[in-house]
Simulated scan of single mutants.
Amino acid sequence: MTDPVLIERDGAVAVITLNRPEGRNALNVALKTALVAAVREVGADESVRAVVLAANGPAFCVGQDLAEHATQLASGGGAAAAISTVRDHYSPLVRGLMTMPKPVIAAVDGAGVGAGLGLALAADLRVFGAGAKLGTAFTGIGLTFDTGLSYTLPRAIGDARARELILLPRMFGPQEAIAWGITGEIAEDPGARAREIAGLLAQGPTTAYGESKRLLVDVEALEAALEAEAVSQERSGSTQDHRDAVEAFLARRPPMFTGR
């Protein structure tokens, strides 16, 4: 089997690569588990002074693997088992990326949707491909924020725009993202440019970078947001609307919401 996550070390730079290109890096349990382990590994490795988060294939990450999610919803554990991934995987990922004492640069090409957008915003810097397609997508399947987006998105683009993007979950491009305040740059080869930036940062004052990140992240607020996301997803994930919307997505038909 192909490893779902690859770790490459180039001097003081570590590159974490999502490696499920055939599934557009949709986050199934194997990928999420490996990604949590990879983030913890490079975060604790003192020889690593900068990190790149990248992906193989045509998409950065299209979020939760809904086919696997539907199977979990239908299992004996039901919604509780399916939504436990927020506490088990998504929150630890965001916590690890945002609090590791070294810079993280996300190379985002293709789709970065739902949790994929959350991972990109959990990084310190972003490099986008010109054709990147971004979006929240959660309410389209009867869910709400996870992967720290309730914390990162309003801080990046403001409360009003964040409300628009969760209530009207349209896709947007990198030009819009940058104009709104999701800082980053657009490059022909996002992965190569992200490695270049990481190489420069790896030569910088690592302790100062780490302390700067610590000061910029309100850890208590982040933890409160992650816990609130988990509780809200448990409520949303228990609805009939969510179950029906996942089935509709997999059947490629529009969802019908009833508010239940």
Rank of each mutant, 00 (worst) to 15 (best):
G158M: 14
R161Q: 13
D3I: 04
A132F: 00
E22M: 09
T239V: 07
I186N: 01
N19A: 13
G114S: 14
P58H: 07
E211G: 15
G181V: 13
P169D: 06
V29G: 06
V231G: 00
L73Q: 15
A44Q: 14
D241C: 07
A80K: 14
A59P: 06
A107F: 01
A70C: 08
A67I: 10
G259W: 02
D10T: 13
G77W: 08
A67R: 13
A120P: 01
A194T: 07
V113T: 05
A26G: 15
E234L: 14
S212D: 08
V29F: 08
T207N: 03
A251C: 03
A80P: 01
Q233R: 13
V113G: 01
E229N: 01
L168C: 07
P21S: 05
A34T: 09
P92V: 11
M256V: 15
V15P: 09
G57Y: 03
A245M: 08
L201Q: 04
V94N: 02
N25F: 04
I182W: 05
A123I: 09
E41Q: 15
A156Q: 15
W180H: 08
M1G: 09
T2M: 09
I141E: 04
R87I: 00
L117K: 01
I7G: 03
G23Q: 10
L53Q: 05
D218K: 06
G116Q: 03
V108A: 05
G114R: 02
R40T: 08
E46L: 12
Q175R: 11
G191C: 08
Q64D: 11
F249L: 13
I105Q: 11
G131R: 10
G158C: 13
A26W: 06
L121S: 03
G131A: 07
